[in-house]
Write a protein that binds this DNA or RNA. Structure first.
Lengths: 196, 196
DNA sequence: CCGCGGAAGCAAATATTTGTGCTTACGATG
DNA sequence: CATCGTAAGCACAAATATTTGCTTCCGCGG
């Protein structure tokens, strides 16, 4: 029998591979090195064979999208605070906390990066986007169920979501304290009575 | 001696090459094909040898940054309308008009794409960003000179600039009419008296 | 217990991108 | 008009990324 002494070739299960690769993506993206993000690098970092990555995901975009979706859907406890304002504040605070970590910033950048290339499918982009806005939509629906009158999604996008994204994209530091409160106040204060 | 009969090798001047390559970048970026954006593709599209591109720009990031800077600085007439609100409205309207064209969207995406990779240089990012915000800064200064009290740059970023960027990134259509007015109204209406 | 399908690993082939040496054209300058 | 510096083009080489064929292992149903 062939001595497998140094052939420590432990084959990991699909689940382990998936997790390891996802983690590698986030790691590489958070790393401040100017290293490029490509499949061989990811595979190496994850300790899996690059062919496995190619076969499973096919393209970097698909991998990014999958990573983002998986990670983001894992971190949305999204507890009900009892009021629209409370829920929005909780969301904004969680977002701030998230993008203060380099991993959080990496995820946001991954969202952005995974968007443009899949340009040939506008429907796909929309779908991706819907997923990102899902928590917001939930908050709106709960508010509506309570009889509150939540601002339209577009307004929440403009006044609450967009500021976070643009700061991550351009690498701008968040204002010190009270930023979530500031944004939510603006959002709820300005368009209060203005319906459609 | 090699016969150069059909060697219709017209060598274009540096300026022509520059322009052709810039145009190719924008074209490829606007094209709805899922084609990847890389230097060989750009060079081919521009009809120049790819080595010229490599030698002149060195990297895709540098090329993107150069393209963006050149194009954006060309399209900023930015005339003085006589009031802060007027200037902001003009800026917002121009932005809307710009990102209604696929070329305009391409430019914005190029801005975003050219950002992340230069991650090792936070100062470089900041500088890039400053350039993007230059017109806004001008508007603020003119307003200040008039005795008006313009909102701080951060607020303009959050309420005016960010919404445009996020819509381009996620490929969301702009609201029908009155969007510039809506954003500017929110901006000037909400934070009017609120100082720091 | 035995075979089967799925997926990971390995290795090698292929394709693509990036970089280099050299030649040649253009324009500026004397 | 001669010369020189710059930058484009070509051919080819090196480096990287992507794909493919095959083997091996794992879990599952017969």
């Amino acid at each position: 029998m062939p001595q497998k002494q140094e052939s420590e070739r432990v084959r990991r299960s699909p689940e382990q591979v998936r997790a390891a690769v996802h983690q590698a993506v986030v790691d590489l993206l958070s790393d401040p090195q100017g290293e490029e993000l490509n499949i061989p690098a990811i595979a190496q970092r994850a300790g899996v064979n690059h062919t496995s990555v190619y076969r499973r995901w096919g393209s970097l975009d698909a991998l990014l999208a999958d990573t983002v979706t998986t990670r983001l859907e894992r971190n949305s406890p999204l507890n009900d605070t009892g009021s629209l304002r409370g829920d929005l504040l909780a969301w904004a605070r969680a977002s701030v906390a998230s993008i203060r970590t380099s991993e959080g910033r990496a995820l946001v950048r991954a969202v952005v990066l995974s968007m443009p290339t899949g340009a040939q499918a506008p429907g796909e982009r929309a779908q991706q986007f819907q997923r990102r806005m899902h928590s917001i939509e939930q908050i709106r629906q709960r508010a509506a169920a309570r009889g509150e009158d939540p601002p339209p999604p577009e307004q929440i996008l403009d006044q609450l979501v967009a500021p976070f994204y643009i700061r991550v994209i351009f690498g701008i530091d968040l204002p010190a304290d009270g930023y979530p409160e500031l944004l939510v106040d603006r959002l709820l204060g300005s368009g209060e009575g203005s319906g459609s």
